[in-house]
Write a protein that binds this DNA or RNA. Structure first.
Lengths: 409, 409
DNA sequence: ATATGGTTGGTTGTTTTAACCAACTAACTG
DNA sequence: CAGTTAGTTGGTTAAAACAACCAACCATAT
């Protein structure tokens, strides 16, 4: 992969100068991404779409063929003239490793460059010794490789709950597992020096990335917010196809915005956070208090129980989830007004009862939306078929293969 | 100025291919901006900062000298070796026009490329006939030019209250002046066909741009939110030196996020919007209700009156503004958690009583900030000495002279 | 005072890279 | 075999990199 020139951030402009190598790298990345997104696609179509001369396209495509990142195949049923040579991503050649470290479970996967997961495994998260656990994770990942007869990994991506300094591969603050300033990048580089591309990111942000790269919606998503509804609420904000990281890597903490002055106590210590109303934790608490009030005896349930009950038309469960839907709607309205995204994509167990929550969400949002365009907002469950946070880890790794400099106007 | 290649937005990547002209244009823009931000600066320093070879820098600088965008001057007091030739922006050569259309007043200015305003004027806003009024504005602007013996304008920038489609130069929705889908760009192009660069933008967003380009803070601002506190509350979000526009050009409508369920009625029709508590309108209403309760007789004041009273230590005015400060703090806390900016920059009449409101704001924010880093947030009054909205219009225009493609990693 | 080496800033002529261009070949249809 | 579309080849051009050079200054030795 191409070596990058030093990037100097000076005042109001990110200064990156351009030389011929950067030019090639930008155009190569652009063509490779076009093939990824539009396959099958011919050289001539790439030329017309990109504006690059067809001989330039041929030259870059020839490089990509040599690198075995793509392959070509004659198209048969053309109407007139010579048939184009369709280009496709080549699978089965380059692989990446994905790790998702969650408070309870850590999951592993090997993924191909199209985001398909080749093999998976998981272990309980052992957070007391960060360095040892990350090394243990790498052993697990390499074990998966061996099992699948994969000799080496192009890149590794790690997604994790908490605030992550992705630029420096450091987990700054992960209260759920008690980690602070853990340099995951350094640990991995030490353990696996042969793997040059390591990415580390927040789980909700990486889920957003997975949705951006591998989501299947009718929309052309480039501006959206991915909402990860779990015990808490996390999010990833995507603006013009890029993740908004935040100055201190803490963007998208909508879960801790105050919606109710003097409201319910949140795990963060403040009162009235959105999370204290719309998260799984809040939903479960509300359900329990309802049942306890009704029956007098205490119950012990988890989110999945409430969902199953609702799917079986249990009245209290349905009522509880509808309330959660309304609370979700309130917070989502504020997100829409803040960011003005094209869509809100939701992930988490709760999307199993989409039919229950969606009408509540959209009613609130429509009522509160104040501009004509904002009423067009799309609120959708994630289209991903595998766990977004794990695919997100894979996506961060895959991104290092496809991405390079980008040029913007 | 350099002609741009067609930009095709396709799925998840903005496709811009690169050829040698784009390369030159990127490097030229980078050097020109370096001179703008760091002047005086020598060729050799530019070379070292940018990574470009010094011969390349010399070549581009020679172009800029020919275009008379910059000038050079020998530096005298060097320690050792040949003295560098310091490069400076050349003023008095290229000018831009700025128009700020507000609900009551429309202001005009001619600005030099360093953002200094050469001459100014204003008229009452006449909103009933948009096309006629915009043409009238152009006549005013050209009149200012004549008065200052300026032959032509390089660019024109128009900032306006409301939702603006900056890409297409259309005012989509401006309820304050009753405009809807007014194609300002087309009107200006028709009226002044010789002016090729026209920019149109929301007033708060353009204020943010002005702060980004011409603000004087100790901070290196590249991620921040500009809050414009007027009768309502507008904002401009800057992420990595770029304005966040929003899918429907409606980002940053924090003023209409709900902070109080079932709270005060807002002009937008909803209940409990931030704006209904922290804006000038809300402040004035709160002050009036306090005074009426105390004295029994009704009063009629405007925001500036309350500010003057507070500056003269009037107790009720101070109390009212302190309350506004606390409400501001609540909303700002939510912005910080949503966007995670490096700073919040505030504009509007209320910053005249910064000493009154700041302690209230920061107390609330510190209490609610939940992550270590977020506690470092900078909340500051605007550093701009002229009206941000007018300078913002000028900045949009100036930006067209300096900006071109940018390369990001 | 003046020559000289050391140092920094800037220019010039050549080389290299990669995109562009125009003419060509390839492969297909009717 | 003409017409059409896809892709390649060889030469051209633009621009950055490179290396050698010139310019201008200082300190110091003579």
């Amino acid at each position: 992969m191409v070596q990058r020139r030093t990037k100097l951030n000076l005042g109001n402009s990110n200064i990156i100068s351009v030389n011929s190598k950067v030019v090639r790298s930008v155009n190569r990345a652009m063509i490779l991404n076009l093939i990824r997104e539009r396959q099958p696609i011919s050289r001539i179509k790439i030329s017309r779409i990109s504006g690059l001369n067809k001989s330039t396209v041929s030259s870059i495509v020839s490089d990509l063929l040599n690198e075995e990142l793509i392959y070509e195949k004659m198209k048969e049923d053309q109407n007139i003239g010579r048939n184009p040579l369709d280009l496709y991503l080549r699978l089965g050649k380059y692989f990446v490793g994905a790790v998702n470290i969650d408070s309870a479970t850590t999951r592993f996967a090997i993924a191909d460059i199209d985001g398909s997961l080749i093999s998976k495994s998981s272990v309980p998260t052992e957070s007391s010794n960060p360095e040892g656990f990350v090394e243990f994770c790498m052993d697990n990942l390499l074990g998966l490789c061996e099992k699948s007869s994969i000799k080496n990994l192009e890149a590794i991506g790690v997604s994790i709950t908490g605030i992550v300094d992705s630029k420096n591969h450091i987990v700054s603050f992960a209260p759920n597992i008690g980690w602070e300033n853990v340099n995951i990048g350094a640990i991995i580089r030490k353990k696996c020096p042969e793997i040059s591309n390591v990415s580390v990111g927040n789980d909700a942000k990486s889920s957003a990335l997975a949705e951006l790269w591998f989501g299947k919606h009718d929309l052309n998503l480039s501006n959206f917010v991915f909402l990860s509804i779990g015990p808490g609420i996390g999010s990833g904000i995507v603006v013009e196809n890029r993740l908004l990281e935040g100055e201190y890597n803490a963007s998208g903490e909508f879960g801790h915005t105050t919606l109710f002055e003097e409201g319910n106590k949140c795990v963060c210590g403040n009162l009235g956070c959105w999370e204290a109303y719309a998260s799984e934790r809040a939903t479960v608490a509300r359900y329990i208090s309802k049942v306890n009030n009704n029956s007098g005896k205490s119950v012990d349930v988890i989110m999945q129980d409430i969902i199953e009950l609702a799917l079986n038309k249990d009245k209290v469960a349905l009522e509880t989830l509808q309330e959660t839907g309304r609370y979700l709607g309130i917070g989502i309205s504020n997100i829409i007004k803040s960011i003005d995204p094209h869509a809100i994509i939701m992930g988490g167990k709760i999307i199993q009862v989409w039919d229950v929550i969606y009408p509540e969400i959209i009613e609130i949002v429509q009522k509160r939306a104040f501009s004509g365009n904002a009423k067009n907002i799309n609120i959708l469950p994630t289209s991903l078929k595998v766990r977004p946070r794990l695919l997100g880890a894979a996506t961060m790794a895959i991104k290092t293969i496809f991405d390079d400099y980008k040029i913007t106007a």
